[in-house]
Write a protein that binds this DNA or RNA. Structure first.
Lengths: 167, 167
DNA sequence: CCTGACTGTCGGGTACGGTAACAGTTACCA
DNA sequence: TGGTAACTGTTACCGTACCCGACAGTCAGG
């Protein structure tokens, strides 16, 4: 579209889609972490719990693969959740080196509350838009997200900052 | 909209606007930093240079206020840029405690290249959308960004990760 | 049975973020 | 005029988080 030798356009940052996405993404992650903090978990814990909900008994390695992180990080995440009483590391039925990760009843009670917080937070973020505009925005974002190479629902920044909301 | 006592909706993460924004924002910031790295600067340096372009001679404190960060962080950012030969700390004409920050010729030569990289990066991110959809998306994002409380063009995550692309 | 590969975990080096404090300078105000 | 309070830019410090390799225990295949 732009001439390959032309200098960049002189638009302000606030009109560039990449800046807006980065700015809004950071703000969204930050406020969501704040909303979730009273539950004693961080956004990455929430994502892990959501994954565990459909598929308990997985290995830590399997979970790490699905979320695209290193097994070492999974140790820390599960330590947090176990300390919080939300997951159990049971013996794996067939592989004695591995753990089978299961949700506790407390986690099953917590998840609906967390989902409601997520809904409220989303509604708050999208306040300026009506229902039609929200639909168009989400559809557009999904199309952009598909191109990033990350599997659906996998956050690229997951490999860090697990303990911020834990203490 | 949702009943206040209802459990949260059971949508996957990939369909929630707040998750999509956070995911895309992180990915966008990451790839933009990569595109910018060959120039020897990070995204926050780019933002600072853009601000300096319209308004040289500012004090470090003034710049920190405009960007919403602490003066100490500005010291680090300017250290990087000065080391890179892009800014000069001159004596302030009226206040001998303060520095007057000026761009160098190298910075004025670098900025068009950086802007072109930003344009290309934006185009790359928005590939799946046509011109109309891009316009609608940017307009919607701008309306959401206005509600965050951050001044236009101010990135909330600016207070960190300055040195990632410097070395 | 024995070697190689895998699982989950632990310690150590390193870099980062935020706090407190500093000298130099200005502004206020009696 | 003098003296105190506030401000600028900077440094030193400390607790924390992240990355790396290494480890015991266990499985799989020849």
């Amino acid at each position: 579209m732009a001439d390959d030798l032309a200098p960049g356009t002189d638009r302000p940052l606030a009109g560039r889609a990449n800046f807006l996405l980065s700015q809004l993404g950071f703000h969204t992650a930050q406020t969501f972490a704040t909303r979730l903090a009273p539950l004693g978990i961080a956004p990455n814990h929430f994502g892990l719990l959501m994954h565990l909900e459909r598929g308990e008994g997985s290995t830590q390695q399997q979970l790490a693969d699905v979320l695209g992180i290193h097994r070492k990080v999974m140790v820390g995440l599960l330590d947090d959740l176990q300390h919080r009483g939300l997951v159990e590391r049971r013996r794996h039925p067939t592989d004695r080196r591995a753990h089978a990760i299961h949700l506790t009843d407390a986690a099953r009670a917590l998840l609906p509350r967390a989902r409601r917080i997520a809904d409220q937070h989303e509604d708050e973020i999208l306040t300026p838009l009506d229902a039609d505009e929200r639909g168009h925005l989400i559809a557009a974002l999904q199309r952009l997200a598909e191109r990033t190479g990350h599997p659906a629902g996998v956050h690229p920044g997951l490999q860090s900052s697990a303990r911020s909301a834990t203490r």
